[in-house]
Design a binder for these strands. Sequence first.
DNA 1: CGTCACATTGATGCCTCTCAAAGCTTGTGG
DNA 2: CCACAAGCTTTGAGAGGCATCAATGTGACG
Lengths: 210, 210
Amino acid sequence: MKPDNQSSASDTTETALSDERAIGSVVPTRRDLRAGTALFRQGDASIGLFYLLAGRMRLVRVTPSGSEVALHTISPGEFFAEASLFSSSYHCDAIALGDSVVLIYGKKALIAEFNRNPEDLWQFAGRLARQVQGLRTRLTLRQIRSATERVRQALLLRCDESGFWKTEGTLKQFGAEIGLTHEALYRALARLERSQAIIRLADGIVVKRK
Amino acid sequence: MKPDNQSSASDTTETALSDERAIGSVVPTRRDLRAGTALFRQGDASIGLFYLLAGRMRLVRVTPSGSEVALHTISPGEFFAEASLFSSSYHCDAIALGDSVVLIYGKKALIAEFNRNPEDLWQFAGRLARQVQGLRTRLTLRQIRSATERVRQALLLRCDESGFWKTEGTLKQFGAEIGLTHEALYRALARLERSQAIIRLADGIVVKRK
DNA sequence: CGTCACATTGATGCCTCTCAAAGCTTGTGG
DNA sequence: CCACAAGCTTTGAGAGGCATCAATGTGACG
């Protein structure tokens, strides 16, 4: 996570990458960012698409009056700034919250690739469409006020046909993902178990029909 | 909003449409749905992309155990089932909540169009990317518990450089969009005005620097 | 002028957040 | 192998805030 060498004037290093993470024939470049460093700022000419390997990035828009509005926090494994491919500059700042590693897919290279090989563009669009789907679902889930019901629905969305959901990561994390404090989550789980809506196992949870 | 004629065995009518709403050369078909009618069901072969002209549609997934999970509610002006273009069948049910009118863009026609004219695919992808952006922002906004602060941030996101936001639609609607009851919204606005964070005008709101 | 939907403010209760504390698990080092 | 630390898990007590119910004012429209 720490930069392997030092570029002249900034807290970032950039390394070429011969990677299996290529999009079509576009091989990303790796860049290491120290905590607090900006990857790009509002108004900068857009240079490409990003993928967060490690760390955490915050996207914020600074209003003319100086107020900050948080747009999104990027977690490892996420692509971000997709929309910048379609416009000439960024509409927000991207700041590294902790030491971070991002992959950069050059804009020109990507566009050339998509022109050359529309099949890649098709796949890219597919990824976006599924993302839209997932985000809408999450948004709908957040509409549910009741912690108990929200947890139940979240479990229903994630479990397989038999109703089993294998725990991935910690429950605390799960709580954060669905917008609950861990205490609220634990209490909701306890309530669901008491009412026999779920059965808690060592490695997961079984959701029962209502 | 009411069907103009009756098809033989169902509560839907379908009409060809020579429209300016075409995507590339793909002209949509219009379909009228009575309240309660399904536009498609989980497992149906995907026939295309939809656009809601009027009414309201609900997307729900029915779990094997019979529980329903609401995925999204479509409002007029929204495209939906974009992801179905990339898979062979639907993963949820689409039910008309009220009498509704949808435009249908045939899947095969769209794919052919995108193959013939990648520029259209590029624009389609751009729309998806901006949608992802907007949804992420909305999701982040929902993380803010405090009604007052959520309203302030929502206003900051929507106002122009001078801090002015022209009211569009009703405030009640605005409340629903950001996940607040209208009462909570009015109280938040009153609080913001009292603390001089905003100024309310007849046709909009001015957000002041903090 | 009456109706209907929006706008606004009041009172109340529930639910989740917050702060706190204790049991549990895992990993690390002596 | 044991001891200690750190983070997850779990439950308790208290408080604040938003939803809910309720009532009134206001504007548009026929």
